[in-house]
């Protein structure tokens, strides 16, 4: 899974999708996940990193992670290459 190349995420949590012209706002955790997705980190790498940094267990994180990426998919911010 990859974030579309042309999507820009600003420091203020503003996401602009030039393909659709839509803009979004995201929170800090969402921003960090998006940054890691852009760096092509695997879900496992993301999970490990986030659970180290935040007060959250792996199972709970996984649940929120898939909910979040589901939203990214719904908003078509993801390159569907598979």
């Amino acid at each position: 899974m990859q974030i579309k190349k042309n999507i820009a995420v600003s420091e203020t949590g503003f996401v602009f999708d030039p393909t659709s012209g839509e803009s979004y706002s995201i929170n800090k955790v969402g921003q960090e996940i998006m940054a890691m997705l852009k760096d092509e980190k695997t879900p496992q790498e993301i999970r490990t990193r986030m659970c180290e940094q935040y007060d959250i267990d792996q199972a709970s994180f996984e649940k929120y992670y898939y909910d979040f990426t589901g939203m990214l998919r719904q908003f078509q911010l993801i390159e569907e290459d598979e």
């Binding site: 995201i26 929170n27 800090k28 955790v29 969402g30 940094q53 007060d55 909910d67 908003f75």
Partner: peptide, 11 residues
Amino acid sequence: KQQFERPYIKK
């Protein structure tokens, strides 16, 4: 560890 808030994106 930092307090976790579930990731979220809003149009």
